[in-house]
């Protein structure tokens, strides 16, 4: 079976990049070409965080219909709080802090999947319920204050080599690794197989439960990593630091060409969608649209892109 394509024969992941590029052109046509580089650097710096959480979300969404992680913002916050308090602003402890953050994230992801698999809760409920628990822990761990990062962490998240911020570069490398893992490794193939048909994957010998557990754990780990780095980048862990990433983590995955029905993941497309989201905000600010118009344009553009993106090829 094959779906009829109406649009031009471009891969689904390219649409985010195209629209992002168009927004960039529109923005710099209003502000002048001399601002083009600065706008791009600022966009890429923030898009990197969206890509980190989006990549985790993508692994979960691709692992099967209905799988989604709504606990990402609270995992980011909790991991950032615990990591910052483990480091006490001490430069020597940045790796300890990183380990704490990753540990928190992986455990949180595993707890998410445990609630789904053992209690048979729908993922949307299980991860939302855990998110309240994680957020409560974060409040208990000094929710009355912003916890500062060690100076080295703060400096390294904003470090530039020859004018190019280094953190987004590292995230690009991560994206490439995830692409290879999805295409070439047993885990990647198993994840997509489980996402396409749980029963067929099971009959083919894929341990669906383990694969999904890994997907959730990796998602938690990537969210926690994003929280850790974001705390360094923005000057501290705050209770509401993850709030904007709930919607964004899902939106960048869907706009990036990953199928919500599972079984088809697109890691590079997340970058296009993340650039689109961040440039959209910059463009709306540049033209100083009223609050209502901003929300309207955001909604219309998202619907338009999702409608235009050709549906992923149905597999024979």
């Amino acid at each position: 079976m094959s779906t009829v394509r109406i649009g031009p024969l471009l891969p689904p992941w390219s649409y985010g990049f195209i629209v992002a590029f168009a927004l960039w052109i529109v923005t710099i046509s209003a502000t002048g070409p001399s601002r083009a580089g600065g706008t791009l650097v600022a966009t890429v710096a923030f898009a990197a965080f969206s890509v980190l959480v989006g990549t985790g979300q993508m692994l979960v969404i691709a692992s099967g219909p209905g799988n989604i992680d709504l606990s990402i913002p609270s995992v980011m916050t909790l991991a950032a709080y615990l990591a910052m308090s483990a480091m006490h602003e001490s430069d020597g402890l940045v790796f300890l802090g990183l380990a704490v953050a990753l540990g928190v994230g992986v455990v949180a992801g595993a707890l998410n999947y445990a609630a789904i698999a053992l209690l048979r809760l729908p993922p949307i409920i299980a991860t939302l319920a855990w998110s309240f628990v994680f957020q409560s822990f974060a409040i208990d761990f000094g929710g009355e204050a912003t916890l500062k990062p060690p100076p080295v962490l703060a400096a390294s998240t904003t470090f530039r080599a020859a004018g190019i911020p280094i953190l987004p570069g590292a995230v690009v490398v991560l994206t490439l690794i995830v692409m290879v893992v999805l295409r070439r490794t047993v885990f990647g193939r198993s994840l997509l197989a489980a996402g396409q048909s749980e029963r067929a994957a099971y009959l083919a010998g894929v341990e669906v439960g383990w694969v999904r557990l890994w997907a959730y754990a990796l998602c938690g780990g990537l969210g926690a990593l994003a929280g850790y780095l974001l705390a360094g980048f923005t000057g501290g862990a705050a209770l509401n630091m993850g709030d904007i990433y709930l919607m964004e983590s899902i939106a960048v995955v869907v706009l990036g060409g990953t199928s919500v029905a599972g079984g088809d993941a697109n890691a590079i497309g997340i970058w296009g969608a993340a650039l689109f989201f961040n440039l959209l905000g910059i463009m709306l600010n540049t033209f100083r649209f009223q609050a209502g118009v901003r929300l309207f344009l955001t909604g219309v553009l998202i619907i338009a892109i999702v409608a235009l993106v050709p549906h992923a090829r149905a597999r024979a």
Binding site: T27, I28, A30, T31, G32, R35, G37, G38, T39, V41, A42, T43, A45, F46, T146, L230, F233, T234, G235, G236, A238, N240, M241, D243, I244, N278, G281, I282, N285, T286, R288, A291
Partner: peptide, 23 residues
């Protein structure tokens, strides 16, 4: 000359200001 919505949150304000500042 510029207006952004920072949502009373340091991280959001930083992101929005960083985005508009080059222009």
């Amino acid at each position: 000359v510029g207006q952004v919505y920072g949502e009373w949150t340091s991280t959001v304000a930083q992101k929005e200001v960083a985005g508009i500042l080059p222009s």
